[in-house]
Nucleic acid binder design. Sequence first.
DNA 1: CTCGCATAGATCGAATACAATATAAGTAAG
DNA 2: CTTACTTATATTGTATTCGATCTATGCGAG
Lengths: 235, 235
Amino acid sequence: MKDLAATVARRYRTTQDMVADGLRQGILSGAFKSGQPLRQEQIAEDFGVSKSPVREALRQLAGEGLVTFSPHRGAVVSEISYEEAREITEIRISLESLALRLAVPKITEEDLEQVEEVFRLAGSEEDISHYANLCWQFHEILCAFAGRPRLQNMIESLHATYDLYVRVSSREVMRNKVRSQRQHRDILDACRSKDANAAVKALEHNIWSAFDEILAHMERFEDPGEDGARKAGYK
Amino acid sequence: MKDLAATVARRYRTTQDMVADGLRQGILSGAFKSGQPLRQEQIAEDFGVSKSPVREALRQLAGEGLVTFSPHRGAVVSEISYEEAREITEIRISLESLALRLAVPKITEEDLEQVEEVFRLAGSEEDISHYANLCWQFHEILCAFAGRPRLQNMIESLHATYDLYVRVSSREVMRNKVRSQRQHRDILDACRSKDANAAVKALEHNIWSAFDEILAHMERFEDPGEDGARKAGYK
DNA sequence: CTCGCATAGATCGAATACAATATAAGTAAG
DNA sequence: CTTACTTATATTGTATTCGATCTATGCGAG
């Protein structure tokens, strides 16, 4: 009996890591909605642990930008406004461009084949969330070839925060699948011909397109120019 | 009597914020050296608090990259290897360039005057750490004009981590003060003439120079090519 | 003499208990 | 009827206690 509990615990080196991973998954999967308060006691009970590791897990997620702390009011799933989504897009482009520039000279044909495989899988994937995952893997793998762990972390962290939005516009993602795939094709081709400038240009196009899709989705529900800005923004 | 204690506490909204700020200052000022273990109980005693807020403060600093956690081994002040310093430099350039590009079109003459003031102060500053501070303020203020809070945070966080290194090479910083100031002059001039490309180019030069100074300092103590890499790097 | 193992001390991590703060409901005055 | 204040409750934040893991010292076998 105790062994079973120990086994589950053993899969993570500490309890807080387990809780952090669980919460991260919950947030990114949409089980917790944006702006939703995360009650420490409730979470502790759900995971069958005490509040201490929960609090520290939340702190960790706060560092990743997924949740936001307010003194004596606890943590809520981060909400991002239009301005923040744009800002994250700008930063992502900047960092992924850097990664791609560093990666292109190093990249080998085997490396590219690995990305091509993901590209092919994405091409024949019809499920929305699976496709989004493969899209992200495409970027992730490419960035990894840069061999810059800290940069990689930052990009992944930004992507995770960004995903809080992407999820709501998954329909748009599928609608624009053809365009998205063509852009990825452009990136791959540029990488293969070792043309870093072209690759970065294609990447910028790709990421901005994704943002435009989200924007289109948002505008369907609220006008960012008017009270939507107040609504989408916080404070 | 109780009011006094309350007043001290009141300056911070929560205890962990106070501890986090205190530790951050301690780390950046060099009171805690790189690689030094941060004993929770000792810190708690020093601050006159319990371990709980200390642990959460450390978690927060971990999110900022200033300390590193290892399961059941606690937190140590982050060490950065040559590779990481270079990586941070690359990322800083990328992000500060983005900020500068966004700032240039918005920047007003009054804004520039504000930076000029810092520039002048730096010119007549002889104290090493004060000069380093003013240098950083120069960059910080310029980036702020971009009006991108998240970007600003990331840049500040990177700078803080970077400072763990810059400190050791402050002599080099002073030695190259003339060059540094000239580069800052270039940046300012480019901003004034609204030439974003030139400003970014000057900025890149400036940040890479700073890295070269550190590199020169490091090479005086260890050869990064040989066992120094093993020594400086980890894992 | 070296290597491996066992045991003890120190330190971290988690659970529990307690105090401080914010939110909301309810009441009384204007 | 509205508004301001009081009070009750829920929730966070901090302290304390307990248990688990790591590190170092010492002992014995090879």
